[in-house]
Design a protein around this nucleic acid. Sequence first.
DNA 1: CCTTTTCATCTGTATATACAAGTAAACAAT
DNA 2: ATTGTTTACTTGTATATACAGATGAAAAGG
Lengths: 154, 154
Amino acid sequence: MYIQLKFPYLYFVKTSESKYCHCLYFTANALARKIEKLAQDSWSKVNLSPSHAYLLMMAIEEPGVQPSMLASHLQLQPSTITRLIEKLEDAKLVIRTTEGKMTNVYPTPKGKELLPKMKECLNEFYARYVSILGKEESNKLVQSMSKIADKLVV
Amino acid sequence: MYIQLKFPYLYFVKTSESKYCHCLYFTANALARKIEKLAQDSWSKVNLSPSHAYLLMMAIEEPGVQPSMLASHLQLQPSTITRLIEKLEDAKLVIRTTEGKMTNVYPTPKGKELLPKMKECLNEFYARYVSILGKEESNKLVQSMSKIADKLVV
DNA sequence: CCTTTTCATCTGTATATACAAGTAAACAAT
DNA sequence: ATTGTTTACTTGTATATACAGATGAAAAGG
């Protein structure tokens, strides 16, 4: 004997109808994952994950930028930044120089070449979510989320 | 020669001041990670990650619940659910029975025993974020995030 | 100067999650 | 009945991320 639940197959549940939708935990994660997917999709043209792409863009904008700086701007742990840089280095898109305890990250020519395409991806990503959410609503969302993220510093 | 950036060490940047704060991608991820941390902290008393805890709670509320159901309510992929269940099974908190192609997940007595403590964790988690964000604002946030997550179904 | 502390980064390891492919059951179509 | 398709779940593998500890440089204290 086993319980066969009501809707055989594809229990598709909207986030807002999920049993745990009222819970900040799942809502925030579900939203982040969906946005992640949209972003991955938008950056697939340059064969980079969004994080790698943003890091590369920062290195282009600010050549010699340091991992600690990248960590705080990208809101990631230093160890994560190390790993991201390693991968970009393998792909010959950035180089790292170490002087004393400091490390500086510079884009390679090959990395710089990608900039226009990355900007396109950025625009496409923006356009896509604006077309889904509307300009108003997406701006409001970003603002309120970052305000709240600041408050949540633990 | 290397560039020494302005604020030696601890480039602490609020989410709202990050170079990429205007980007939905980083904002959503940063927020989700902070909430994740708060949740992990709240559930550390039962030695479970929030996802594991929620899965266990669902199995207690609805004994015999199926992985597909869990996947849609917890907004996770079926394979992820399999892995979560495996771990709970190792910890003897749930058991799985398979009949045909269906799988049912039941809490063990040891699992059920945890319910009161888990409810405490849930309450603590809720209380913590409400105390930081306010009741109004946190409700509004959850609502708008889940509404937007629904729209983003790709 | 020497010692201790702090700092910036890296390494080892672990986690949650995902995708894609695999498997086996159930269903459908002829 | 046989065969093909769909479904439900699992497995293999990969990824991004994190934490904790290691390392080596710099700064501070005496």
